[in-house]
Design a protein around this nucleic acid. Structure first.
Length: 224
DNA sequence: TGCCAGGCCGGGT
DNA sequence: ACCCGGCATGGC
């Protein structure tokens, strides 16, 4: 019954936090900006997203109604630096339609539902997948859902904490069952996974200087 | 120069 | 169920 839970993820969190310090994610001045950024950053570097957000901010469009009223062609031009600008304009408008037409443009209204309901609502939007939905819920809504990304997957799998074949849901369950259900912790931890991933998982996988190197299984990182 | 980045969708087998 | 291509810009 009281099954013993190994504290590996908690230990990894401590190490990453010690090494990298608080990440203060998500960059953005308002929850709405965070929400927009979550769509724009899909498979894209944050640097490019910043340009797009700057354009929107300079145009005074970082508000639900203002952005939703903008013609799609103009939206496309403004977010162009973020890449995939035609798809993303469509995806943003799909999201804005739900936000504006179902919740009167109020993020608070959208996030005051049960987490499961809010998540389902986001996932039903064309162009919003699990990672984008969770990023919006956690970073814009402060709701406790863990954001899984490719770095998270690699780190956990290479340490043997989960199989490489694990899908998004399995990873999320595995992580959430081992950590206290705490939005601030999830927030920091996801950002730390990205930090360690960028530095150590890109070219040289989990090299000796990786703060998690000592937690690797005997024989080193597992291969895919 | 080529490859990649904080995904997601649709079509083919 | 699986695999794969499309989507696009900017940085290294």
């Amino acid at each position: 019954m009281s099954q013993e839970r190994s504290p590996q993820l908690q230990q990894a969190f401590e190490r990453l936090l010690t090494r990298f310090g608080p990440q203060r994610w998500w960059p953005g001045d308002s929850p709405f900006e965070v929400m927009v950024g979550a769509v724009l950053v899909q498979n894209t570097s944050w640097k490019n997203v910043e340009r797009a957000l700057d354009n929107l901010r300079d145009a005074g469009l970082l508000a639900p109604r203002e952005l939703y009223d903008l013609p799609q062609a103009e939206l496309e031009e403004l977010i162009r630096p973020a890449g995939y600008y035609r798809v993303k304009a469509r995806r943003l408008r799909n999201l804005l339609a739900v936000l504006c037409e179902r919740h009167g443009g109020s993020l608070d209204a959208m996030f005051s539902q049960d987490l499961a309901d809010a998540r389902a609502e986001l996932l039903a939007i064309h162009g919003i997948g699990p990672e984008t939905a969770d990023a919006i819920l956690l970073y814009a809504g402060k709701l406790p859902t863990f954001v899984v990304d490719s770095y998270t997957h690699r780190v956990l799998a290479r340490h043997g904490w989960i199989g490489f074949e694990a899908d998004y849901h399995q990873l999320q369950e595995r992580i959430e069952e081992e950590l206290p259900r705490d939005a601030a912790l999830y927030n920091e931890y996801h950002a730390l996974f990205v930090a360690v991933g960028k530095q150590f998982c890109r070219k040289v996988p989990l090299c000796a200087e990786c703060p998690l190197a000592e937690m690797l299984p005997p024989g080193g990182p597992l291969e895919e």
